[in-house]
Simulated assay, not measured.
Amino acid sequence: MTTYKLFLRAISKRSTWVCLFLVVYATLLSSSWNWLNSIVDWYGENHNTSSSGWPAVYASVLLGAVFGVLSMAAALFIAVPAIVVIWISVVVTMAFAGKSRRSVVVEGRIVTKEIAGFVFKVLLKEGNFVALLCALLAYFVFFNSYSSST
């Protein structure tokens, strides 16, 4: 078999997509681990010097942003195969409905823009929700450690 056929066979398996997701997510997590550690270290250095709870607010917002971006990246990686299947289904259905090639191309571009816009809106909404949830959780953890250490 040629390399191309082996690649197509491997990429068509669900386990391949799961492994790719895990590799990409682990890479994102490990690369952002330094950011997370530096945020927590910054909070550890600054929560004793400030008499207010602002370092806890800053650190929790930054942690929420990092986890929000991570969740959007993970959701996008999972959504891409589903988006491609939906797009192919729509284009093939239009072709079988008797549309000309030119109109399939034109309407396919419109459908692509609509799908991409909808996916972007959903990703943004879910990423913001995860960011808010993580920021609130981090704030309460930081604020409790701040109030218990003074």
Rank of each mutant, 00 (worst) to 15 (best):
M1N: 10
T2Q: 10
K5P: 03
K5W: 09
L6D: 09
L6K: 11
L6Y: 08
L8Y: 08
R9C: 05
R9W: 12
A10D: 13
I11W: 10
I11Y: 13
K13A: 12
S15T: 10
S15F: 07
T16D: 02
V18S: 04
C19D: 13
V23D: 04
V23A: 15
V23F: 12
V23E: 05
V24L: 15
V24D: 06
A26M: 05
T27Q: 10
L28C: 11
L29K: 09
L29P: 04
S30E: 08
W33Y: 15
W33D: 11
W33A: 15
N34T: 11
N34V: 12
L36C: 03
N37F: 05
S38V: 06
V40N: 10
E45V: 10
N46A: 04
N46C: 00
N46S: 04
H47V: 15
N48G: 13
N48I: 14
T49P: 01
T49E: 11
S51T: 14
S51Q: 14
S51A: 14
S52Q: 03
G53I: 05
G53H: 07
W54Q: 09
P55D: 00
A56C: 03
A56E: 00
A56R: 01
V57H: 01
V57I: 10
Y58G: 03
Y58L: 13
S60N: 00
S60L: 01
V61C: 04
L62H: 03
L62M: 07
G64H: 00
G64D: 00
G64A: 00
V66D: 01
V66E: 02
F67H: 07
V69K: 01
L70V: 00
L70S: 02
S71L: 04
S71N: 07
S71R: 06
M72V: 03
M72Q: 07
L76I: 04
F77V: 07
F77N: 08
V80T: 04
P81N: 01
P81S: 01
I83Y: 07
V84H: 05
V85G: 12
V85I: 15
V85R: 15
W87G: 10
S89Q: 09
V90F: 07
V90I: 15
V92Y: 06
V92G: 02
V92D: 08
T93Q: 09
T93G: 11
T93V: 08
M94V: 01
M94F: 05
A95R: 09
A97Y: 02
G98M: 03
G98N: 03
S103L: 14
S103W: 07
V105T: 09
V106M: 12
V106S: 14
E107Y: 13
G108A: 02
R109I: 12
R109T: 11
I110S: 14
V111M: 09
K113P: 00
I115T: 03
F118C: 10
V119T: 06
K121C: 05
V122K: 06
L123F: 01
L124H: 05
L124T: 11
K125E: 05
K125D: 04
G127P: 02
F129W: 11
F129N: 09
A131L: 00
L132W: 05
L133M: 06
A135I: 00
A135W: 00
L136C: 08
L137K: 03
A138H: 01
F140H: 04
F140G: 02
F140M: 04
F143D: 06
F143K: 07
N144W: 11
S145I: 09
S145F: 12
S147A: 14
S149Q: 10
